[in-house]
Amino acid sequence: MTTAPMLETRRLNKRFGGVVAADNIDLSVETGELRCLIGPNGAGKSTLFAMLCGIQRADGGQILLAGRDVTHMQAFQRVRLGVGLTFQTNRAFHQLSVRENLAIPRIPHDAERRALGAERLAVALETFGLDPEDETRAGELSHNQLQWLEIAMVLSGYPDLILLDEPAAGMAGEETARTATLLKRLNATGLTIVVVEHDIAFVKEVAQSVTVLHQGRVFAEGPVEAITANEEVRKIYLGKA
């Protein structure tokens, strides 16, 4: 028996007016994989994320989580099945304290997921140097700490798959490296991770495999070395950026 991929999309479509944001996207991410999604601005990365977690409805196609069709589920129902996500612009609760931020997520009842989730959360808190009892208001944290807090908050819900939208955006070298270290350490615990990222150096550092989106389509896919060496991929990137 072959196990179903952790995340799979089948011929996913979405258009806004005349703009095609997703054009028959087929994506398959295995359990335990660390996948990076890259692509120039407007390639459809954020739309794809929004559809994966249920914030936006696809016009057509299917989304499967561990073999289960979630296409018509609400966002919170998908989260309860084990998805966590961070947003491109930081959305930790600025009015609440660090402790409260970490206490908000809904925790699953399953004992096995709890044990694994607690372990992963501990890894994140340690890597980022966050104190779960800290009563500091999140709004007083620095940009990096806020980004990290949001990742830790998502991990507090004990997900099996996390979708991160530019987790290292706006960070300096040392902080970016710390974020990369975390992703690799989390991945080593078996957590499936999908990252949208612009910074190719970061992608090279963390990813095992890369999917390139371009104009709403999957343009190329493969191991990170092959993709970064691909002339066509370089062309669409350089042509834009």
């Binding site: 966002a75 930790a92 809904r106």
Partner: peptide, 8 residues
């Protein structure tokens, strides 16, 4: 939206 995507 953030709260919903924490599972509520």
């Amino acid at each position: 939206l953030r709260t919903e995507t924490l599972g509520y």
